[in-house]
Each structure stands twice: as structure tokens, then as C-alpha cells.
């Protein structure tokens, strides 16, 4: 199986130590080695955004990182996105707006949406659409996703 390397990584708050083949990318490591199958793989060339996860708080394409590159870092997947604060509100809003159909893009879409709320946070549909422009959804037509993110921001602002 070629060269392997031991890595220590905090995944969803759990300390993980694994020998990993150096060529294994982060998405395959999460899915196949750790069983975190909520991270979806749609293209393996960094375009579709389905595999988006957070590494040290920043969104990344997990198909465009090697597992060995997260040594000593923190990884958060859909399974580990805390069900509080904006994430919980986003889940409720996605449900209410029907902002998902097949759900394959949803974990990556949520990761990007959380990032938008944290970094930009304006209920500006154009900016939201721009921020989501790296997350491909073939089912919804995007509008309900934009609606859901706007809902969360507006409710947050009113509080």
C-alpha cells in the first residue's frame, strides 16, 4: 500500500491517531478510515464542493487535501458541526425552506453557509449566491438555500 505515515488529528473533537497511506486524500480518510460518510465525494477535482469540511475552522475541499496534511490539525465534518447556534438554525431553516432534495450537496453546503454567516453575515442575496458559487446543487435551483441562509441571518439580527 505504499508509504504510510502516522498522523494525530482532532476530528469532531475526538483525538484520532492513525497510520494512513500518504496518497489517501482527506475525504477518503474521513469516509473509509473513520466511517464519517456524511462527507460526500462528487468530483474529486475540487469543483463540486460536496466534500467541503472545516480544517482549523476554515472550509476546505477534503478531496484536495491529503490526510497527512491534517496532522496536528482539527477537522470538523457534518457529523461534528455542533447542533447549536447558527448550525442548528441553518438546519431548521433548510428544513423549513426545503433547501435540499437528495441531500448529497447538503453537508458541503452547510459548511459553506456557516462560513458565510460567520465571515460575512449580511442578508444580501447576491453575496450569498457568490459565496455558494463553489457548491454545486443539481436539485434545488439554489433559491431555497439562499432563502434559508437569509432567514437565519435576519432572525439573528432581530434578536
Amino acid at each position: 500500500m505504499g508509504q504510510t505515515k502516522k498522523i494525530k488529528v482532532m476530528v469532531n473533537g475526538e483525538r484520532i491517531e492513525r497510520d494512513v497511506a500518504v496518497r489517501t486524500n482527506l475525504s477518503d480518510f474521513l469516509r473509509n478510515d473513520l466511517g464519517l460518510t456524511g462527507t460526500h465525494v462528487g468530483c474529486e477535482h475540487g469543483v463540486c464542493g460536496a466534500c467541503t469540511v472545516r480544517v482549523n475552522g476554515q472550509t476546505v475541499r477534503s478531496c484536495l487535501m491529503l490526510a497527512v496534511q491534517v496532522d496536528d490539525l482539527e477537522v470538523t465534518t457534518i457529523e461534528g458541526l455542533a447542533d447549536t447556534g447558527p448550525v442548528s438554525a441553518l438546519r431548521d431553516a433548510f428544513l423549513k425552506r426545503n433547501a435540499l432534495q437528495c441531500g448529497y450537496c447538503t453537508p458541503g453546503m452547510l459548511a459553506s453557509a456557516v462560513e458565510y454567516i460567520e465571515k460575512i453575515g449580511e442578508p444580501d442575496r447576491k453575496k450569498i449566491r457568490e459565496h455558494l458559487s463553489g457548491n454545486y446543487c443539481r436539485c434545488t435551483g439554489y433559491q431555497s438555500i439562499v432563502d434559508a441562509i437569509c432567514d437565519v441571518i435576519q432572525v439573528g439580527t432581530e434578536k
Binding site: R31, N32, L36, T37, G38, T39, H40, V41, T77, I78, E79, D83, R91, F94, L95, K96, N98, L100, C102, G103, Y104, T106, P107, L110
Partner: peptide, 21 residues
Amino acid sequence: EARLDAKRLLHGRGRFVDDIQ
């Protein structure tokens, strides 16, 4: 009505074929 089975997908608990080993 909201799709109740969509909650699963929002928590990354869908089960797509490639998830199965």
C-alpha cells in the same frame, strides 16, 4: 409540510451506496 426525512440528510446521516462497506 417540511420533509421530516430531510433531517437525516442535514445531519450527514444519509446512507448512499458508496457509504456502505
